[in-house]
């Protein structure tokens, strides 16, 4: 009997202590984590694809609903402004790839009416193979693409050179960018007017 009570007491004490420690640390680190996630995940991607801007992307971002019925979803749009003037917008789209979902941040230059760049945000493909889609050699092919184009790999009859050995990842990037192009084509005016 004494053993059982001892067990219960010891386990309870350890659980309570660790629980308390964890919740304290969670509180302390919540803010730095959120900041770090934006800083390391979204910001580099946005910086690489948007022209120079001076506003805070986090504060200015808006949620925008696109599609109808089953394909309805909410996307986050980041506007890039300089001196109060809207230069470009960026939005993130996803496509399923070799190792799971692949996220692409697509920037759109409002002046030129062309893509200002594409950057891969999240992917879990094979390191050294699928991840090579992040390299400029591949990703820079999406720069300055006009709105009315549907992108495809050369092997599929399009104009994009796939990363050797990673045609699935390359195809997924194409699809994500195509999605973004579609969204901008269909809703671009609305988004721009809302952002302004």
């Amino acid at each position: 009997m004494r053993d059982i009570i001892k067990m219960i007491v010891v386990l309870s004490v350890i659980s309570a202590t660790t629980g308390a420690a964890l919740s304290y640390i969670n509180n302390v680190t919540a803010k730095p984590i959120a900041a770090a996630e934006f800083q390391y995940l979204k910001e580099p991607a946005l910086k690489s694809i948007l022209p120079a801007y001076d506003n805070s992307l986090v504060e200015d971002k808006i949620e925008f609903a696109v599609g109808e019925g089953e394909s309805a979803k909410t996307i986050t749009v980041y506007p890039a402004k300089k001196d109060g003037k809207l230069l470009a917008i960026a939005l993130e789209t996803f496509a399923s790839s070799y190792g799971g979902d692949l996220g692409a941040m697509v920037g759109y230059d409002i002046e030129k009416k062309r893509l200002s760049g594409v950057s891969i945000t999240t992917m879990s493909d094979t390191p050294g193979l699928g991840t090579r889609t992040k390299e400029p050699k591949f990703i820079d092919q999406f720069k300055d693409v006009p709105l009315d184009v549907t992108l495809a790999l050369k092997a599929d009859g399009g104009g994009i050179d796939a990363v050797t050995g990673a045609s699935i990842s390359s195809r997924a990037v194409c699809k994500a960018v195509n999605d973004a192009l579609g969204i901008i084509r269909d809703n671009g005016e609305n988004i721009i007017s809302e952002v302004k």
Partner: peptide, 27 residues
């Protein structure tokens, strides 16, 4: 720690440290 529940106790301790490491690293 009583020997009958030692594995559970060890796991609790280890798991806590792991979560701490994860949160610290993230932050």
């Amino acid at each position: 720690i009583p020997s009958k529940v030692r594995i559970a106790a060890y796991i609790l301790v280890i798991a806590s440290f792991v979560v701490i490491v994860e949160m610290m690293m993230k932050a």
